[in-house]
Computed example of a mutant assay.
Amino acid sequence: MKSHVTFSRNQRHGIFLLLLVIIVLQCVYFFIDFPSEDVAVDDTRLVQFEKTIDSLRLDKLQKLKPKIKPFNPNYIDDFKGASLGMSTKEIDRLLVFRSKNQWINSSEEFQSVTKISDSLFEAISPYFKFPDWVKTSKAKKVTSNNFKGIKTYAEKKDLNTVTAIELQEVSGVGKVLSNRIVKYRNSLLGGFSDVIQLEDVYGLSPQVIENMAKQFAVKTPKVIQKIELNTATVNQLVTIPHIDYDLAHHIIEYRQLRSAYKAINELLKVKDFPTNKFKIIQLYLHLEKNIDE
């Protein structure tokens, strides 16, 4: 064992010398500053390289962004509006406007209704896509809605006999809307009874209906078997457009509480009555005038 741990004098001198060399080299490494060669940097190429990296990064970010497809701003809902960056108040203004059966027909009108910022307007307005009849309406505006003056009753065409092509003579009525009007007219089994029924055709704005009333009239009206309001049953009332069973019960309940209706416009006081459809519902009702007289 002693032979493995005992060193001779020469061996001990060698070990001390090795330790001394190691210590000297460590001191040289830490305390002596050796000159280093400067690395030459080409600033022009470095700037070009940074621009290339930035462009690739931006290109990747653009690809990750959701693409916006052309759309009709009239049909923006809560989710669509939020994804476009609209605030809750801006979306609510649009929904209130549409709830009145009004239509936005230009980008400027959209900003006027919603009051969105100019920056957001510039970002999303290029994607607005309005129906063809809107463009046609603007192009023909100088002709005063496609006809001069107000036609007399004799000059007007019968709304129950005109073709889809003739309907397109009115500003705001294109191929889609004209076919929709004819289809709705056929569903009435006898045609229109009054021009006011055009309000039930989806997509017709009040302005377009007004233009049609100047051009057409119901000269061969469908004969409606009117229902006596003060004796009508629930089953009779639900045959009238826009009256369901709940509303029919409310109408009869109101009649029972007041013994009888004195005027048809008292329906406007009935719970949940669709006031905007009163004129259409009125076409199907009759009221005797001598109830209390």
Results as ranks from 00 to 15, higher is better:
8 S>I: 02
163 T>D: 07
220 T>N: 15
88 T>P: 09
149 G>C: 09
192 F>S: 02
141 K>A: 14
141 K>C: 08
22 I>P: 04
183 K>I: 04
67 K>N: 03
36 S>Q: 13
224 I>P: 03
15 I>Y: 02
237 L>H: 02
113 V>M: 09
197 Q>I: 04
76 I>M: 01
242 H>A: 07
197 Q>F: 06
122 E>D: 12
274 P>M: 10
222 K>H: 14
140 K>Y: 08
30 F>K: 10
235 N>Y: 07
149 G>R: 08
234 V>Y: 04
211 N>T: 06
41 V>F: 14
117 S>P: 03
7 F>W: 10
25 L>Y: 10
209 I>L: 04
75 Y>D: 08
284 Y>V: 03
97 F>R: 01
117 S>N: 05
167 L>A: 08
104 I>S: 01
158 D>E: 09
125 S>F: 04
182 V>P: 01
76 I>H: 00
249 H>S: 11
55 S>I: 02
202 Y>K: 14
208 V>R: 06
225 Q>L: 11
269 K>T: 14
244 D>T: 08
76 I>S: 00
140 K>T: 10
231 T>K: 08
28 V>A: 11
167 L>P: 02
85 G>T: 08
241 P>M: 00
35 P>F: 06
176 V>T: 08
172 G>N: 02
121 F>M: 01
30 F>P: 01
45 R>I: 12
84 L>R: 03
9 R>C: 02
26 Q>A: 13
52 T>P: 01
161 T>R: 14
109 E>F: 05
138 K>G: 10
275 T>Q: 15
32 I>S: 10
107 S>M: 05
32 I>N: 12
265 N>D: 15
2 K>R: 09
50 E>H: 07
164 A>G: 04
138 K>F: 12
283 L>S: 12
64 L>E: 12
281 I>K: 02
14 G>H: 14
277 K>M: 15
71 F>V: 04
220 T>G: 07
268 L>F: 11
158 D>G: 06
144 S>Q: 13
203 G>D: 13
69 K>P: 04
192 F>K: 00
160 N>R: 06
161 T>E: 15
49 F>Q: 07
111 Q>A: 12
127 Y>K: 02
206 P>F: 11
154 A>Q: 15
31 F>M: 11
56 L>G: 08
195 V>A: 09
286 H>C: 03
86 M>K: 05
193 S>V: 00
283 L>Q: 15
59 D>N: 12
65 K>P: 01
179 N>C: 00
248 A>K: 00
280 I>H: 11
252 I>N: 07
279 K>R: 15
267 L>G: 04
51 K>H: 12
73 P>E: 07
122 E>R: 11
134 V>H: 01
264 I>T: 09
57 R>I: 07
38 D>N: 13
16 F>R: 12
59 D>Y: 06
279 K>D: 15
225 Q>Y: 09
166 E>F: 00
105 N>W: 06
15 I>S: 00
225 Q>P: 03
162 V>A: 11
288 E>C: 00
91 I>R: 10
288 E>K: 09
17 L>Y: 12
211 N>I: 05
156 K>V: 03
112 S>K: 15
148 K>C: 11
167 L>R: 04
90 E>D: 10
223 V>T: 14
184 Y>S: 13
256 Q>K: 13
293 E>M: 12
152 T>M: 08
